[in-house]
Amino acid sequence: MLYELVQSTVSGLLIGAAFAVLSVGFSLTWGVTQVLNIAHAAFALLAAYLGYFASSYFQVDPVLVLVVIVPLFFVLGVGIHQVLIKITAQRAHDLALSSMILTFGLAVVMENVMQVLWTPDPRVLKTSYTGKAIFVGPIAIATTHLISFVLAMLTIALLYVFVHHTLTGKAVRAVWQNPTGAALSGVNMGRVTNITYGIAVATAGIGGVVMSLIYTFDPSTDMVWLVYIFLVVILGGVGSVLGALLAGLIIGLTVGISGVFIPLVWVNLVLFLALILLLLLRPSGLLQR
C-alpha cells in the first residue's frame, strides 16, 4: 500500500507538470485579452499529431520536432489573433462570449480536419525510450514521464522569467492589469496581444507533445484536454503562471493518488467535486489575493 502510494505520488507529480504546460497559455490569453481560446487544446492536439508522424514516418524524436513546432505555432497564434479574434473584437458586444463561440467553432473544424486527414484511430506515440524506466530504489519512473516533466518545467520556468523579468513581460502584465492604463503609458496593445497569442499557442504546441508522451490520443481528445485546462486555470487563477504550475501539480497528484483507492473512471468525479468545492470557497483561484 505504502509503495503504491509513493509510486502514484511520483507519477502524479510528473503528469501534473504536463497538465500545467498544457494550460498555462490558455490562462495567459484569458488574462491578458479576456478571450477564452477553446481551440487551445485543438492546437495542442495538432502538435501531438505532428510529433507522432515525425516519429513514425521519419524516425525523428517528437521532442526534437518542437524546434519546428514552437516557431510555427507562434506564427499560427499571431495569425489567429490577426485574422479571427481582432475582427470579432471590433464588432462583438461581449468579447468573452463571442470569442468563446468562435474558437469553439475553430476547434470543431480542426477536429474534423484531423479526423479526415488522419482517421479517428487512437494513436500511441512510440519513441526509442517508450517502455523504459529509471529506478529510484523500488520506485519506477517512466522515461517518457520524466522527459515530459523536464520539458514542461523548463517551459514554465522560461515563461515565468518572460512574464516577470523582461521588459515585454512587464508590458504584458500591464495590459493584463489595466489595458487603458497601459495604452496611456505608451504600450502598444496590438503588439502585446500578438505576442501573447503567439506565446500561448506555442506553449499549446509544447503541451500537446508533452501530453502525447503520456497519453494516447485521437481527433476528439482535445475536448478531454480542455477539461483539464479549465480545472487548472480555475484552480490556479486566470493569468497566473505559478498558479497554473501549482494547480497542475495538485490535479496530477489528485489523479495519481485517487487512482490507488478508486477505479480510474471515478477519478474525474473526484476532480469535479473538488472543483465545485473550490468555486464555493475560493472562486478566484488559490493564489489570487
Binding site: 512587464k170 500591464a174 492589469q177 489595466n178 487603458t180 497601459a182 496611456l184 503609458s185
Partner: peptide, 29 residues
Amino acid sequence: TFQIVQPFQNMTALENVEIGVLYGQGLSH
C-alpha cells in the same frame, strides 16, 4: 488622467510609473 483611476493594481507605485517611462519615452530598462 482618467476620471476613474487606471492603475496597475498588482504592481508597486514605482513600477506603475516606470511602464510609461519605458514605453512612452522609450528609455531602456
